[in-house]
Design a protein around this nucleic acid. Structure first.
Length: 279
DNA sequence: CAAACTCCCTGTTAGC
DNA sequence: TGCTAACAGGGAGTTT
C-alpha cells in the first residue's frame, strides 16, 4: 500500500522520466479513475500540456502542467491501495490492470495501473481544491514537536487513528503508523491528548526515522538515473503472533477505527511513559 | 464537531 | 485439491 515513502519514490521516478515532455493524448480505460473533471473533459483538456514539475503532497502526486496561451493546470494522482505508474514504450503491450494511459512526445507513455480501482487522477487549475484540507508534512522542518503537541492536545481519539487522519498529518498510512508507534513505545489506544511532550518528541522522531528509512529502501537512485526498488521490512505490521523484536512478547493485532493495528502489549505502554520515571 | 459506519474494488487467504 | 466467503484497506461521504 503506497504511503508517503512509496509516493516519494514514485515522484522521483516520474520526475526523471517526464520532466519537460509533452502529453499528446490520453486514453481512459476505466472511467472512474478520473475523479474530476469528467473523463471526456479530462481527455479533451490534457492534450498539449507539458510537464513542468513533479512533486508530492501527503500521499498525492502533484504534476504541474503548462501550455502556451492556456491556463496552468495540475494533474494530481492518488495511488490509494494498489495504484502504480510506469513510463514505458508506446509499443509495449498493455498490462492487465492499466486504467489510464498518457501518451508522451518521446515515444513513451505514462500508464496508471490499479488492480483495485481505488486510485484517482484529478485535472484541476488549483491544487488546493483537492489538497486544501491536508495537514502537516511529517518531514518538513516547519513541523515542530511543539506544533504537533499542540495539535494532539485537541484530540481525544486514539493516537493510532489520529496518525491516520490526513487533515492532521499528511502521508502517514496504516503500516508506518504502527511502525512508529512501536518504535516510540506508545500504545495505539492512548488518547492523543494524553501524550506528554517527550512522548510526542519521541513519536515525531521515530515517525521521521521510519519514513526516511523507508524512502531510502523503497527507491534509491545510484546515480544512473534508475530507481532501484528495495524493500522496507516492517518490525510489527503484519507480524501478529511473532515475538516482539525488542522484548520477545507476542505481537498483538487489534482493530482501531476499523483498521488492523499491530503492537507489542508489553513494551508499548498504555500509561504515560514509565521510562521517564525509572530513568 | 467527532466518532462510527458504508462504500468503492479485487487479489489473497482462511475455511470447508 | 478446489471452491466459496471473508478480509484488507485510503478516503469520501453519510449517519449517529
Amino acid at each position: 500500500m503506497p504511503e508517503l515513502p512509496e509516493v516519494e519514490s514514485t515522484v522521483q521516478y516520474l520526475r526523471e522520466r517526464m520532466l519537460g515532455l509533452r502529453i499528446t493524448e490520453a486514453t481512459v480505460l476505466w472511467a472512474r479513475t478520473i475523479d474530476r473533471p469528467s473523463h471526456a473533459t479530462f481527455r479533451k483538456q490534457i492534450g498539449g500540456y507539458s510537464v513542468h514539475d513533479v512533486s508530492r503532497r501527503g500521499k498525492y502526486i502533484v504534476i504541474e502542467l503548462a501550455k502556451r496561451g492556456q491556463p496552468q493546470r495540475f494533474l494530481l494522482g492518488h495511488l490509494r491501495m494498489s495504484g502504480s505508474v510506469d513510463v514505458i514504450s508506446q509499443a509495449a503491450p498493455l498490462a492487465k490492470h492499466d486504467r489510464v494511459v498518457l501518451k508522451l512526445d518521446n515515444g513513451k507513455e505514462l500508464r496508471f495501473n490499479d488492480p483495485r480501482k481505488f486510485g484517482r487522477l484529478y485535472l484541476v487549475s488549483s491544487p488546493q481544491t483537492v489538497l486544501g484540507k491536508l495537514g502537516l508534512e511529517p518531514l518538513e522542518d516547519s513541523l515542530s514537536v511543539e506544533l504537533l503537541y499542540e495539535r494532539l492536545q485537541r484530540k481525544r481519539g486514539a493516537i493510532k487513528s489520529i496518525l491516520l487522519d490526513q487533515t492532521i498529518l499528511a502521508g502517514v498510512g496504516n503500516i508506518y503508523a504502527d511502525e512508529c508507534l512501536w518504535r516510540s513505545r506508545v500504545h495505539p489506544l492512548r488518547r492523543a491528548c494524553s501524550l506528554s511532550g517527550s512522548e510526542v518528541e519521541r513519536l515525531l522522531g521515530e515517525l521521521r526515522g521510519t519514513l526516511q528509512e523507508a524512502i531510502k529502501a523503497n527507491g534509491t537512485d545510484f546515480g544512473d538515473g534508475v530507481i532501484h526498488e528495495g524493500l522496507y521490512v516492517p518490525r510489527v505490521y503484519g507480524r501478529d503472533g511473532e515475538p516482539c523484536q525488542r522484548c520477545q512478547s507476542p505481537i498483538k493485532r487489534i482493530v482501531v477505527g476499523q483498521r488492523g493495528t499491530h503492537f507489542c502489549p508489553n513494551c508499548q505502554t498504555r500509561r504515560k511513559s514509565r521510562s521517564l520515571l525509572s530513568r
